[in-house]
Amino acid sequence: MQDMILFLSGTNCGVYIGCSQNDYGNDLDLTDLNSHQNLGNNNAVLASRISYYLNLRGPCLSIDTSCSSSLVAIANACDNLLLKNIDVALSGGVWVIPGPNLHVAMSQLGALSSDGRCYAFDSRANGFVPAEGVGVIMLKRIEDARRDRDHIYAVIKGWG
Rank of each mutant, 00 (worst) to 15 (best):
L61V: 14
N43P: 10
C13L: 02
T31M: 05
S62Y: 08
S51M: 10
C19M: 02
T31L: 04
H36M: 11
V45P: 07
G58H: 00
G10E: 09
L39I: 15
A44E: 12
L56T: 05
N26E: 04
Y24N: 10
C19I: 15
S51F: 05
Y52A: 11
S68K: 02
D32E: 11
R49E: 13
Y16T: 11
G14E: 06
S66K: 12
I50M: 06
R49N: 07
L39M: 15
S51C: 10
N38T: 08
Q21D: 11
A44K: 07
N12I: 04
S62L: 00
Y24P: 05
S68P: 07
N42D: 15
N22P: 00
Y24S: 12
D32T: 12
L8D: 00
G18L: 00
D29R: 04
L28G: 06
S70R: 03
D29S: 09
L8Y: 11
N22Y: 13
Y24H: 10
S68C: 07
S66N: 13
Y24E: 06
L30V: 13
G25N: 05
T65P: 09
A44R: 01
N26R: 14
D64E: 06
N42H: 11
L46M: 12
F7I: 12
T31G: 01
A47D: 00
C60E: 00
L8Q: 01
D27F: 03
V45Y: 05
L46Q: 03
G18M: 03
Y52K: 04
N34H: 00
N26V: 12
L56V: 02
S20G: 13
L46V: 11
N38E: 03
C60F: 07
G58F: 08
R57M: 14
D23P: 02
L56A: 02
H36C: 07
L61C: 12
Y53I: 12
S9P: 01
Q21S: 14
G58E: 08
I17W: 06
R57L: 13
N42A: 15
L30Q: 03
D64Q: 01
H36S: 07
P59C: 00
F7P: 01
A47Q: 08
T31F: 00
Q21A: 14
S70Y: 11
N41E: 07
H36W: 09
D23H: 15
L8M: 12
C67V: 10
S62T: 10
T11V: 03
S66I: 14
S70H: 09
D29I: 01
I17A: 03
S9L: 09
S68D: 04
C13D: 07
